[in-house]
């Protein structure tokens, strides 16, 4: 936990510097007749972030904040595995939306999550993997008229468009 606190604070300090540099692309000073420049607001707030990060690091050195005193692990092995599987599966799902579309990615994600993490029966898994995309389609595409990305599967939806839209 102690190391993680420091690593996060340092990472955030670097992020603050990057944001300061980025916001300085627009004028950050006073422009006569116009008031503060467009970059001033984000610039000074990023400076605020940097000051806070340094403050957090100082507190870490002096061991005055609870995480900087904690000797517990930031994540034990079980949590780390759960986190990696969860975040990894989500990343894979969002990535695959670009290729096979939402209606390909949703069932795959559900099957993976329910079978591998949840150990649910195939019957349960299949039911949800079929129902969820159907409900999503009717709610978003038909009711809300929001077209979700379909990637390669786009041609499969032409008959459905003809039917419902």
């Amino acid at each position: 936990m102690r190391t993680a606190d420091l690593v996060m604070a340092i990472a955030m300090a670097f992020l603050s510097i990057a944001l300061m540099w980025k916001s300085a692309e627009l004028p950050i000073g006073w422009i006569p007749e116009e008031g503060p420049g467009g970059g001033a607001f984000p610039f000074w707030l990023s400076t605020g972030m940097l000051v806070c990060s340094i403050w957090i690091i100082l507190r870490w050195i002096r061991r005055t904040s609870p995480p900087s005193r904690s000797s517990e692990p930031y994540m034990d092995k079980g949590s780390l595995v759960l986190f990696l599987i969860g975040a990894g599966a989500l990343t894979a799902m969002v990535g695959s939306i670009h290729i096979i579309g939402v209606y390909g990615a949703i069932p795959l994600f559900l099957i993976f999550y329910m079978r591998v993490i949840g150990n649910h029966s195939w019957l349960m898994t299949t039911c949800l993997a079929v129902i969820t995309p159907v409900v999503t389609f009717f709610f978003f595409e038909i009711a809300l008229k929001i077209t979700l990305p379909k990637g390669l599967t786009e041609p499969l939806f032409y008959p459905l468009y003809d039917m419902f839209l």
Binding site: G86, L90, M93, V94, I97, I106, F109, L110, Y113, M114, I117, G118, N119, H120, M124, L128, T132, T136
Partner: peptide, 12 residues
């Protein structure tokens, strides 16, 4: 393990 993936999908 049933709720979590459905909520994830709702989020996305």
């Amino acid at each position: 393990t049933i709720l979590a993936p459905i909520i994830f999908i709702l989020c996305i």
